[in-house]
């Protein structure tokens, strides 16, 4: 099994498309960081102007943590696309390249092969999240000092510098789990299709439709909402509320873990039943 996973990683990193995600994150994060470095303080001063009627605002809120939070908020919609591009190609890519039959004549069970691919896809999603974390919190340190962070949740929360890092680590961990759901979805589509485009477009379509439904606060959608995984994708923000609503965090994590497992078994079921013709 270890060899299979290693081979999947080798295949994964030989493909140029694997690096698209990393390059996109690198560029976008750098652009935001440079932009915030140049204009960030002015922007924030304008936004919290209403507080300046009553308070003198001392100290800098544009710092590494605030900018990292802005990056997370800006990028969280786009990371799923980058995850889906690779996860959607994991199985269907083999079919598209015509290497499946060659692969399956070897003494490897379909279950083991698919499991190795699923693990590689999920590891890739986690790598993207870790890369985003390194870029935002690590590289951001080259531009900004650390400091207190402002977050607008139900209230204006200003967190002390010492109270921020664990929130980021928890948010990124949660983010990795939510990306595993997206990756699992794209992977499931990938196990059905025989070209890479279909699973990517399919999973993105599901994501868009579900996100729209999750954001509607009317009638029938309110009933469906708790069952849609998209309702929980933004849950990383819960760690920046004060106090953190742990029951919501745990509930959302369990639901997403259920999705990840269910999608794995669904793709396994599809793949083992599938007639390999390419």
């Amino acid at each position: 099994m270890g060899t299979l996973i290693r081979l999947e990683f080798q295949k994964l990193f030989r493909r140029g498309m694997t690096y698209i995600g990393f390059i996109a994150i690198l560029l976008i994060v750098l652009i935001i960081q440079i932009g915030m470095f140049v204009e960030g303080q002015k922007l924030l001063d304008f936004l919290i102007k209403s507080l300046s009627d009553v308070f003198l605002l001392e100290g800098k809120l544009i710092n590494n943590y605030t900018v990292s939070y802005i990056i997370l908020n800006s990028l969280w919609i786009h990371i799923p696309i980058l995850v889906a591009i690779v996860a959607g190609d994991m199985v269907s890519g083999e079919a598209g390249r015509g290497t499946f039959r060659l692969l399956l004549v070897r003494p490897v069970s379909r279950t083991k092969l698919l499991t190795a691919k699923y693990i590689a896809a999920q590891a890739y999603a986690a790598m993207l999240v870790v890369f985003l974390m390194i870029m935002s919190l690590g590289v951001g340190r080259l531009f900004f000092d650390n400091g207190d962070m402002i977050v607008l949740m139900n209230t204006i929360n200003i967190f002390d510098e010492s109270d921020v890092m664990w929130r980021f680590l928890a948010a990124f961990a949660y983010g990795a789990i939510s990306m595993w759901v997206v990756s699992g979805l794209a992977f499931t589509f990938s196990s059905i299709a025989s070209n890479s485009l279909g699973p990517v477009v399919g999973s993105m379509s599901v994501l868009i439709v579900f996100t729209i439904m999750s954001n509607f606060s009317i009638g029938i959608f309110n009933v469906i909402k708790p069952f849609l995984f998209t309702t929980y994708l933004n849950g990383w923000q819960l760690f920046f509320d004060d106090p953190v609503e742990w029951d919501k965090v745990i509930g959302a994590t369990l639901i997403m873990m259920f999705h990840i497992t269910a999608l794995y078994f669904l793709s396994l079921w599809i793949f083992t039943k599938k007639d390999i013709t390419t």
Binding site: V54, L57, E58, G59, K60, G147, E161
Partner: peptide, 8 residues
């Protein structure tokens, strides 16, 4: 150190 709201 950090951000402070000082009443005007």
């Amino acid at each position: 150190t950090g951000f402070v709201l000082v009443p005007k």
